[in-house]
Each structure stands twice: as C-alpha cells, then as structure tokens.
Design a protein around this nucleic acid. Structure first.
Lengths: 341, 341
DNA sequence: GATTAGCACTCATGCGGAGAGAGTGCTAAC
DNA sequence: GTTAGCACTCTCTCCGCATGAGTGCTAATC
C-alpha cells in the first residue's frame, strides 16, 4: 500500500503532533502547524481516507485523529529519518565510558542509564549468555589459609571466578597440578557443551584430594549455571510515569511489574534479525502486558557473544530519536569492545 | 506520658484496623471488632482524649480517627510485639540461601527480594564500604597473552580483582616480584588509609616495568574507589503501588524516584545506633520526600564491616511484622557470614 | 462520677444534568 | 478537486443535591 505525497505529509504531521502532545490532532491543527497549501476541509477528507485505510483512528466522533499502530508502522518503515546522537550527547556518552572502563558490568549499567536519560524512555541492556566461548584454562590461586580463588579463562579472554575451600596443608604445586588436569580435560570445549556428566567424569579421573576437586566442581557448576543466565539491566523505568497514557494506575502497575523483574523482560525481547535496529510496535510484541508499549533495540557483540540494548516506551514514541540513539550507542559500544574486551 | 489500659487498647485497635483497611476507624468499629465492654459513646470520649493528646487525628469532622505518627511511635515503643518469621517463611529463607551460597552479592540480592516478598514492602540492602579491612597481599596472575588478573586480598578474606594489561614478554617470575613489592609496601594498611600519594610513592620505588606498574596502580585506585562506595540494592519497590495512600500519581512519583536511584536512598538511611532493629516513622526521617514513609532496618556484619538491611513502606505499616522479619533475617544472615565469609 | 442512648450536625462522596468547546461530516458553491 | 459553512456529536467540567457515615453534645441512667 503506497500513499501519495500529500497523504504521507498529513500522516507524518499527525504523528509528530500526536507524539508531542498525546492529544488527538484535528484537521485545522495539521494545516496550521505544517502549512499545507490546502484547507482544513481537504485535510479532513484525506484524514477520512487515511482512517479507512487503517493508518489513523478516531477516539470518538467529535475528536481529532490519532495514528493507529499500523500508522506508526508505516511511519517507521517508510517515512522516518533516524536522528543520531548530537555532538553534546556524544560527548556525554564518552564521559560515561571514560569513568568506567575497568569493569564491563559497571560500564554496561551506565550505558543503560545513559540511554534512558537521552531518550526519556526506559532502557534495558541484556548481557549475553556465554555459549560460544571455549574453555581455555583453569587456575586455582591460594589467597589465604584454607581458601583459594578458582579462575576459568575462555578463549575470548573472559574470566570467571569463584572462591573455594582447600585443605590448609595443600601445596601450591599440588593445586597447580589439579588445575592443569582440569584444563587438559575441558580444553577447547565450548562452555555450554560442558555437562554435569563431564564434571562427574573428572571427579573420577582425579583420584587425589577429593574435597578440593569437589569444591572446584561445585564452583564450576555454579559458574556455568550463572553464565547461562542472561543478565538484564533496566534503567529509567520511572520515565513511564511521565507519559500521560499511563496515568491509569492499573495500567501503570501492569507495565512496571513487567519492567521491574528480569524474568518477564527477557521473554519480551524478541530474537534479533540482522544487524539493524529493530522496532516492535505495540501489539507486534507477543506479550499482552506490553501491547501498548514499543521496543527499539539492537544487538552488540562482547567477548564474541551477542547482547542486546534498547529502549521501551509508549507506542506514541519518538521513534526517530530512539532508533538513532540506540544505533549510535550500539555502534560506539561495539567499537569499544573490539579494542577492549 | 502513660495511657491507662483502656486507652491503650483503643489505640491499638485503631492502629490494627487502620493498618489493615487504610480507612479512618469509627467508634462503633472499635467496639464491635475488639469487643470492648463499653459502648460506642464511651469510646468516642476516649478517642477525643487520645486526639487531644496527639495520638490520633481526624481527617475531617465527620470521619473516624486515624493514628497520628506520634500514635504509631507510641505503639512501636510501648505496645508492639514483634512477629518473627514463621516456620514456613523460615524454610523459604533457607532455600533462598541454599541456592546462592557462592557469591555474596547474589545472595544479598536474594535476601532483599525475600524481605520484600515476606513483608510486602520495598526492601533494601546496603553492602558495607570497606574501611576496616587491612591490605594483606596482592597477586598478579597472567591469564592470557598480554592480560593478567590483579587480586587484592584483605585480612578478613575479602578478594577484589581487576583485569590489567601486561607486556607480552613479561615472565611470571617478574610479575610475582612486582606483586611482592606491592604487598610489602601496602602490607597491613587499612584500605581506606591508602591514598593517592601512597600509590605515587610505589610508582617511584619500582623502577622496572613502568607500564605494568601504572596499569596495576590504576586498577588498585579503581578498586579502592569502588570499595568506598556503598552499594545499595533495592527490591520490591512496586509494592508501593498497592498502598492506597499512594494512589496520587505525584506522590507516587516522588517516592519512587527516591527509591529508584541508589544515591538518595543512601542518604536517607540514618546511621545505626546499637544492635537493635531501628524504626523511623514518617517525619522522623530527615528527607522530605519520604516523610510519609517509614523505615525499619538493622545492621549486619560481613567481612568485618557493617552493612544494613531493612524495609521501607507507608507510615501505615505492619511494624510488628516488618520489625520481626528484619530482625530474623539479620540474625540469620550474620550467623551465616560468621561461618562463611 | 462514669456510662450510655439519642439526636442534630458536618462533611466527603457519588450522581445527574446543563453548558461549553472542539472537531467532525456533509452539502453546496467555486 | 477544493473550499466555506453549518448542523451535529461527543467529551469534559462544573454545580447542586441526596446519601450516609460518624461525630459531639445533652440528658438520662447506673
């Protein structure tokens, strides 16, 4: 379905106005603000057409029009021009990163914060699960009497660690031998391919120092379990309180509930297709609780695995800004990770 | 100011009723529900007295009474009996812990979650800053080409770590020498006594391998900065949405804003006095934004440092349950930390 | 002197109807 | 194809009234 120039212009006007004001837009307003060369009556006729085609809807007979979700979809697909970070925002992004380059998790949290601050929507960052990294080596470092730190290092340079108990009498060399044995047995296996059975196998192979082995196995098991969970960070959920469409407490509660916990959100974010910024408008989302919300998100790579960042806001969203921002931040982040992690 | 038996009973009745219903309590209701042996008229007289004394207040002339903040204070000080975790709750607490004994931070997060689930209020856990731990030793572990893990271990067994870059050519022995030097120079210093100046000093002392030293110093600096920040975890803020006193959107927004970010909350929680559960009711809190909220909190010890846990809810709070729960969880947690960390 | 029944009074709350205002659709003229 | 004009529709807000809960006070009672 393709629209002629004038219809497109009218649709865009209505979307821009409606996004700004959250009020139905009347024919007069369209003519005035975007000085079309035609009268309100003409615009009214066009609006009636657009409604019939499904791009607009009317809350009630004597109100103006608002864009339908389909209208937004058309806008996003055919009319939108992404608005990337401006200079000032870009600089402030760089500052965020400069502060926090040491720890990936902190950094990612700040990225989420930045996203929600710039867009005024809620934002999320999903840390990747560790699936494709390969086990590279395992170390056990004694740190104090009876305690050691177990490190698992992957081929992509990711480090995971747990504290374990060791017998006080144990020599460093002995620990190293155990670690080497582990390394040898797991070597080059993809992390998500290590199964409980494999762990058991090692237990049988290494006869000496049973309890260290057991402690280590428990720790590894725990690490793997942990790395299989996608960690989710959500920021700026309270921006939703400012949106007039959620002044209804019940609606608000439902949405905040979804955003408050990690579990639901993970299920909401769809799998990505391709490298582009992806947009899901309202009912395009599977989840019922957020069929009045839109997602704008993209994937990023870190330690060879895919994570996601994005924003979530009302259907009446500044898609141009959101999409541009998500894209800019993603690109920046990836560039950074390429150098760093 | 001491109240006679009957006044106490009436006050308590009104508090219990009001906490449950959030509605002003009338004289008839008091007589009926808590079968006093007197008539409504008598209760009315007593209520008028209690109001004059400041324990009750009247939203408007033809409404019942609600407890004043002073009334709640009296209740908490003189009438309340803490209600500790029941068996079932206790068991579910143990399950939470069993799941997550490996990592302190995860565990603490689950504790916060548990608290808010049991009490139906928002809860918070503040991880202690590291002030009194002493520097014990420093290790640098090569993990892959050009990368090493720097570990700082304290006398209480706390381990902090950062990844640093090292020259690819560097030998393990050389790294160990650097680490030993660090250990020697910082040895037994309290962490919060290590200053930028000290770091500079080391830089001068160790002439060899400048860039490793610099990387290590940056990492240590970063770790120390990080450990000086109290980390705050907040959970169950959405429970507030269920409280009728916050159906007003503006009020809600103000409160959620305070609870959403770590910064404000840190400033709200007062210093603890003694080992007891501490209760701050409404305006007893300094912060204006939460003068309609109450805090119930207590301190816990971990790695020799003090952290805090607690709940935050409306002044109309089930103090008996909240205080009992916070106390039970704190005791349990401390017992656990004594064995574990 | 304390307690109680009775009653007038107060005030929040909910409901319905009137009036204003915004915006439409339709018709007829350009 | 476009436009001016106009009747019509529907929401929103404000006002007044009835309702009902709960009080305070007075006078009677234990």
């Amino acid at each position: 379905m393709t629209l002629d120039e004038r219809k497109r212009k009218i649709l865009e006007s209505i979307i821009k106005d409606y996004v700004e004001t959250a009020e139905p837009v009347g024919s007069r307003a369209v003519v005035k603000k975007h000085d079309l060369k035609v009268s309100a009556a003409t615009v009214r006729n066009e609006m009636a057409d657009l409604e019939e085609m499904g791009y607009l809807e009317q809350p009630h007979t004597s109100a103006g029009r608002i864009p339908s979700q389909m209208g937004f979809r058309y806008y996003v697909d055919c009319l939108m021009e992404k608005e990337n970070l401006d200079e000032q925002e870009f600089e402030s992004l760089q500052n965020v990163l400069r502060e926090n380059l040491q720890e990936r998790d902190n950094l990612i949290e700040d990225i989420a914060h930045f996203l929600s601050q710039v867009t005024n929507y809620a934002s999320f960052v999903i840390l990747p699960t560790v699936k494709f990294n390969e086990f590279k080596n395992l170390q056990i470092i004694p740190v104090e009497k009876g305690k050691a730190l177990l490190l698992v290092v992957t081929d992509m340079g990711m480090i995971m660690h747990r504290k374990i108990g060791i017998p006080e009498s144990m020599e460093v060399e002995e620990l190293q031998a155990v670690a080497r044995a582990f390394t040898q047995i797991f070597g080059s296996k993809k992390l998500d391919k290590i199964r409980r059975g494999d762990l058991q196998q090692i237990r049988d192979a290494l006869k000496q120092r049973r309890n260290v082995i057991d402690n280590a196995l428990e720790a590894i098991d725990n690490l793997l379990k942990n790395s299989k969970n996608e960690k989710v960070m959500i920021s700026g959920t309270l921006n939703i309180l400012n949106e007039p469409e959620f002044k209804d407490l019940d609606k608000l509660k439902r949405i905040l509930t979804v955003l408050d916990e990690d579990g639901p959100l993970k299920n909401i974010i769809p799998e990505l297709v391709g490298d582009n910024v992806d947009i899901r408008i309202g009912r395009e989302n599977q989840n019922e609780d957020i069929n009045e919300m839109s997602l704008v998100f993209a994937g990023y790579k870190s330690f060879g695995e895919m994570g996601k960042i994005g924003v979530i806001g009302p259907v009446r969203m500044e898609y141009w800004k959101a999409a541009g921002t998500v894209e800019s931040v993603r690109d920046f982040l990836e560039e950074l990770f390429k150098q760093r992690f």
